Computed example of a mutant assay.
Amino acid sequence: MSIVLGANQYGKAEVRLVRVLRHGGRHELCDLNVTVTLAGDLAATHLTGDNAQVLPTDSQKNTVYAFARSHGVDQIEDFALLLARHFVTAQPAISRARVRIEEYGWQRLGPHSFQRSGGEVRTATATCVDSEFDADSDADAGLVEVEAGLTGLVLLNSTDSEFTGYVKDPYTTLPETTDRILATAVDARWRYQDTGVDWAGSYAGARAALVDAFVGTYSLSLQQTLYAMGHRVLAERPEITEVRLSLPNRHHLLVDLAPFGLENPGEVFVATDRPYGLIEATISRAGDGVG
């Protein structure tokens, strides 16, 4: 029996970066969480402990901070691309660099005062694959790919949602309903066809498409709503080639008030956090492969 080393990678996870851009008395705030993942010719460090090809994860952290100062941070997609390209081109042993960034929102209260917003988190991931190292791979050669998205976008429709006609087996106790609350916390990722994109405009447009589709869809199932949301993004944003959605069903259950002599005509609910249904799917343009 032979034992071999399989696919492997390493990096620095969750580098917290806050950058203050000073325009006289008025400041701009950028709050990021950056994760770097590197892969390549790294077998020796696993098999023999030879670290000659290993860039310390502490150096990766320092690069994030140094680049934030020397290059600035505007759109997180551009910053992720900058870092990913740097690690591939600067380190001969590294064939693939992936940089994922989460951006946290802050609401302005004054020229230099802010309040952390409770909204969704914007995300971006840039992947750069060295063309020389992967010269035999048509799929990966010279690949630079950007994926953006958001997480934690909480949406709720208090009506225009039902769930009927589903499979019933000996363990089914769920009653059919033609009027229910539909609530979810959207985790969405979308993939771009190239890197020449107005990132801010694309993000705002994709987010608006997700929200508009959720609001405007009479839901027969959360699966149907998910597809409508992904379809709307692709229909309105030609620069996006694929959307991946993960939607937990945040159940709201009607409280039985009969023991208290009260009716409950769809007004009082208990919001449960677990267990929950989890609906996931990828929506892509016809002819596009799923990345």
Rank of each mutant, 00 (worst) to 15 (best):
Ser113Glu: 11
Thr173Gln: 14
Glu263Ile: 12
Asp160His: 14
Leu210Asn: 05
Leu153Ile: 03
Glu147Tyr: 02
Thr184Arg: 06
Thr178Leu: 04
Pro248Phe: 01
Cys128Tyr: 03
Leu234Met: 01
Gly24Tyr: 05
Leu143His: 05
Ala148Leu: 15
Val121Pro: 05
Ala139Asn: 15
Gly196Met: 05
Phe269Ala: 01
Thr172Met: 08
Gly105Leu: 05
Leu47Arg: 14
Gln223Cys: 08
Asp74Ala: 15
Gln224Cys: 13
Leu21Asp: 13
Val270His: 12
Ala141Ser: 15
Ala7Ile: 07
Val243Leu: 00
Ala200Asp: 09
Leu278Phe: 05
Pro238Tyr: 00
Ser59Met: 06
Gln115Lys: 13
Gln9Lys: 12
Val36Trp: 02
Arg122Phe: 00
Thr89Glu: 11
Thr57Ser: 07
Asp256Pro: 14
Ala209Lys: 09
Glu280Cys: 13
Glu77Tyr: 00
Arg207Asn: 04
Gly277Trp: 05
Val215Gln: 08
Ala235Ser: 10
Val197Arg: 08
Thr195Tyr: 06
Val54Cys: 07
Leu278Asn: 07
Thr272Cys: 09
Gly118Ser: 05
Arg98His: 00
Phe260Leu: 15
Leu81Trp: 03
Tyr218Thr: 14
Gly152Ser: 08
Glu14Pro: 11
Gly25His: 14
Tyr171Ile: 08
Tyr203Gln: 02
Asp140Thr: 11
Gly118Glu: 02
Pro259Arg: 02
Ala66Arg: 14
Leu262Glu: 11
Gly216Asn: 10
Thr151Arg: 05
Tyr166Cys: 11
Thr173Gly: 15
Gly6His: 06
Pro56Met: 08
Val34Ser: 09
Ala135Thr: 07
Ser59Pro: 11
Asp179Ser: 09
Lys12Arg: 11
